[in-house]
Design a binder for these strands. Structure first.
Length: 217
DNA sequence: GAGTAGATCCTCT
DNA sequence: GAGGATCTACTCA
């Protein structure tokens, strides 16, 4: 049944009202609030003129050094997660399971390693290109469902780690869409069972009833 | 429909 | 040298 909303497919109309999120959006202290506010925003990639974009409908917050599920748990600082300690607004992309590229947004200020993992988007522009990248034949809900698929469809790889999200190649834009409280669900994060108690924290947020949301509802 | 194995490679210990 | 913020396909029922 996988369907996407036709009236949202008009890219030209969309790009006219897009506003790139300012650095100040990311450089705040409440990562949970930023995660919730990211729902409904548009993630855009523009690699050499090929534009693909999607509306964020699912993400997970990683709450710094006190969060055992985070790569920065306990203040861990390595070559891989160094960018998490940068100022908010940078991309953090890494390879998971040797196959999947996972796209995160760094938040908070310098030296506070907060990040938000983008887990699912609803395709808006460049769906044909997404099909090429993912090798799929039809644009059903599996196209951009789950963090691995999001990166694949939008063409995000580890080489895009450490990009500040305000250039014209990779950014997140506001189109005035906001979800109400009763449209946003909070739940435990996925695939972080190793984190003990922290695995149960309700740091995953998604839009109710979106077919693109991964995991169980 | 539910459960599980396999892919695949970089990063950290 | 182990294991991971995952996905898909395949089995079995």
């Amino acid at each position: 049944m996988g369907k996407y909303n036709d009236q949202e497919l008009n890219g030209t109309r969309f790009s006219k009202i897009m506003k790139i999120l300012p650095a100040g959006f990311y450089q705040r202290k409440d990562v949970l609030r930023i995660a919730k506010e990211l729902l409904g925003k548009i993630l855009v990639t523009n690699w050499e003129g090929i534009i693909t974009s999607g509306r964020i409908v699912e993400c997970e917050a990683y709450n710094g050094i006190i969060d055992k599920a985070s790569h920065a748990a306990g203040g861990r600082r390595t070559l891989r997660n160094e960018i998490m300690y940068a100022n908010g607004g940078f991309s953090y992309v890494y390879l998971c399971y040797g196959i999947h590229h996972l796209f995160n947004v760094v938040t908070n200020l310098q030296d506070v390693p907060h990040a938000i993992l983008i887990r699912a988007v609803e395709p808006i522009e460049g769906i044909g290109e997404m099909l090429l990248r993912t090798g799929k034949k039809k644009p059903d809900y599996t196209l951009t469902r789950g963090p691995g698929n999001v990166s694949k469809a939008l063409g995000i790889f580890t080489k895009h780690n450490g990009i500040f999200l305000s250039n014209d190649q990779l950014y997140i834009a506001d189109v005035g869409k906001k979800y109400g409280k009763n449209e946003i669900i909070a739940s435990p994060r996925i695939g972080v069972d190793y984190a003990g108690r922290d695995a149960k924290l309700p740091y995953r947020f998604y839009v109710k009833d979106s077919p693109y949301v991964s995991g169980k509802k």
